[in-house]
Design a protein around this nucleic acid. Structure first.
Length: 570
RNA sequence: CGGGGCGUGGCUCAGUCCGGUUAGAGCGCUGCGUUCGGGACGCAGAGGUCGGAGGUUCAAAUCCUCUCGCCCCGACCA
């Protein structure tokens, strides 16, 4: 492609609406343009990169024997009603106004409906089905450019198995394919244990790219290899445990102490022996929850522990009605109602605790949870903190922000049961198909790569994703010699199937071309100018390292191929 | 959905508080000429009902009301 023929709207200035580096660079490099909030047009350059990612994914999915589908994005809403997910997705799903259709946010239902009609025997399985297609989600707040948008490209695949061991194998197969995909894309990533969330299922892992702009938070230790989404991360924080003296619980006045910190400070208490009470409404039922000291309740863990769909903190007026006191004075003793009580596992069997008296301005001390509280269950409910000992080797945990680029789920039978997708086993008995679901956000691969591979000048593409491999910068194109040499190199590179862009503009200065080339960031640049042409040479610059070398014109093609090969390995 | 910010030529922005010539700048764009290895220069041009609607006023980009859109923080996130 020639720059004079290409639609390549690069921007010299930073677009004001973009804050994230990858978003800015994608806009500046002319890869994408905003159409509406969370809706992006991919321009030719961006689409070339997107197609590179798609092709890598396709090859790796094919390599594990998965078969490519192309399912409709437009779905009859009845299919979604079958699993109750019309309601579960709620406003997140787009609904068509003039027909009872929805735009699919994912495709478990459609896959299951196909499976139910055609997969009837254990002999029909295992199957792995995938597609690379647009997804639609009515995100309340799209952000970070292409990272969270309302329409995006997803590779989604689904495994169908007759046995749980089969599911494990399908899952492992996908996990290995995902590793290869992200490796080939040059991404620096890690895998974390994750919450299955509202997808349901028996296990899941997320493929993460560390980034300050990420929406997820993970706890990890590089040495032990422990890595988990904060939604499920655990640590070896010791239990609060028991103290020897165990006098009866005793009420005392705490008029100026509403927070744990105030209690600790005013009464010289041990922070973790203050049982902080929280009231949550879990699927419309109230729960009183105790946490040790300033431990943060993890709502994802709470939701998972109670098998709930929705959890929210109680409102101030609800607190009084349920407990008899306001926030800061709530505790296990003398509750106004018999609201169910649960606690974080750190507090199991603990005594010598301080907690609210359910009377504003008063607390109890010497509380023994085994003696004085009616805790029905203890769960791991706390949010792990930076520096805590990891659960594998006790090494300090690092807490980092990350972007989720892939997610693999063991779905189990949630969808097959709901939709009646069953098969007959070798004994003629009916079972629901055992499913897995596996997703990759394709645009996120590009954004994450750019986040990880750029400098102040622009993008630094890995050859695997680069829209073009070689950028020929013809300085002073109106010089017949320069033009001839540039055209010659261009034709020979193209002849070797090297994807090449020739900057053949006559109306811009050298500096402009250099800066555009650095912004676009193709792996190798070839500078053709009068200066080196006198010696029969051109200059080759590696975008990533900035290294330049002078190469005889007839050797340029070979040298470019060598360099690209080296860069592809890195 | 709560909080904050912003909407003025293609882009980045000034002007709005305190209403008053013909609404400005830089970049980009068109034409001509010069230049040509790190975002060149001269000359001549084109391009804006100041997001939209209503109102106040002799007079509105500027004040008031409503509304639409975009961005950021939070909530949410299969």
């Amino acid at each position: 492609m020639r720059v004079t023929k290409a639609f390549l709207p690069t921007l010299k200035e930073i677009p004001s609406d973009a804050t994230m580096i990858s978003h800015r660079l994608m806009l500046r490099a002319g890869m994408i343009r905003l159409l509406g909030a969370g809706i992006y047009s991919f321009l030719p350059l961006g689409y070339r990169a997107l197609k590179k990612a798609i092709q890598i994914i396709r090859e790796e999915m094919d390599a594990i024997g998965a078969q490519e589908f192309h399912l409709p994005a437009l779905n009859p809403v009845e299919v979604w009603d079958e699993t109750g997910r019309t309601e579960a997705f709620g406003d997140t799903m787009f609904h068509i106004k003039n027909r009872p259709y929805v735009l699919a946010p994912t495709h478990e239902e459609i896959i299951t409906s196909i499976a139910r009609s055609f997969v009837k025997s254990y002999k029909d399985m295992p199957q792995a089905w995938y597609q690379i297609q647009e997804k639609f989600r009515n995100e309340p707040r799209p952000r970070s450019g292409v990272i969270r948008s309302r329409q995006f490209t997803m590779k989604d695949s689904y495994s169908l198995d007759a046995t749980w061991e089969g599911l494990d194998q399908s899952y492992e197969m996908h996990s290995r394919a995902y590793h290869r995909i992200y490796q080939r894309c040059g991404l620096n990533f890690f895998v974390v244990g994750a919450s299955s969330g509202a997808m349901g299922g028996t296990g899941s892992q997320e493929f993460m790219v560390e980034s300050d702009a990420g929406e997820d938070v993970c706890a990890m230790n590089d040495e032990s290899g422990y890595a988990a989404n904060l939604e499920v991360a655990t640590s070896r924080v010791p239990p609060v445990g028991r103290v020897e003296e165990n006098p009866p619980a005793e009420k005392f006045a705490t008029p100026e102490a509403r927070t744990i910190d105030e209690l600790v400070e005013q009464f010289g208490l041990v922070e973790e022996r203050c049982a902080k009470a929280l009231v949550y409404i879990v699927d419309n039922s109230p729960y009183l929850i105790f946490m040790a000291g300033n431990d943060q309740l993890n709502e994802s863990k709470l939701q998972a522990a109670l098998g709930a769909n929705e959890v929210r903190p109680a409102r101030d007026d609800e607190l009084g009605e349920l407990t008899g006191a306001d926030a800061g004075s709530i505790g296990p003793i003398n509750l106004k109602t018999n609201v169910p009580q649960i606690a974080d596992q750190r507090l199991e069997h603990a005594n010598g605790l301080v907690s609210g008296a359910n009377e504003n301005g008063y607390h109890f001390r010497n509380i023994d949870f085994d003696r004085d509280a009616k805790i029905t269950a203890y769960y791991d409910l706390r949010t792990v903190q930076e520096g805590e000992p990891d659960p594998l080797g006790g090494r300090p945990l690092r807490v980092v922000r990350a972007i989720e680029v892939g997610h693999i789920f063991k779905l189990g039978t949630k969808y097959s049961e709901a939709m009646g997708a069953t098969f007959l086993d070798e004994n003629g008995k009916t079972h629901p198909i055992i499913m897995g679901s596996y997703g990759i956000g394709v645009e996120r691969i590009l954004a994450c790569h750019i986040e990880q591979s750029h400098d102040e000048k622009g993008i630094i593409w890995h050859p695997a994703l680069a829209p073009y491999h070689v950028h020929i910068i013809a300085l002073k194109m109106q010089s017949a010699e320069v033009a001839a040499a540039a055209e010659d190199i261009y034709a020979r590179l193209a002849g070797e199937n090297v994807e090449v862009l020739l900057d053949d503009r006559t109306n811009v200065s050298a500096g402009f071309k250099f800066n555009d080339a650095d912004l676009l960031g193709f792996p190798v640049q070839v500078v053709v100018g009068e200066r080196n042409l006198k010696d029969g040479k051109a200059e080759i610059k590696v975008r990533k390292t900035g290294e330049r070398e002078k190469v005889r014109i007839e050797e340029v093609v070979t040298r470019c191929q060598e360099l690209l090969g080296e860069l592809a390995q890195a």
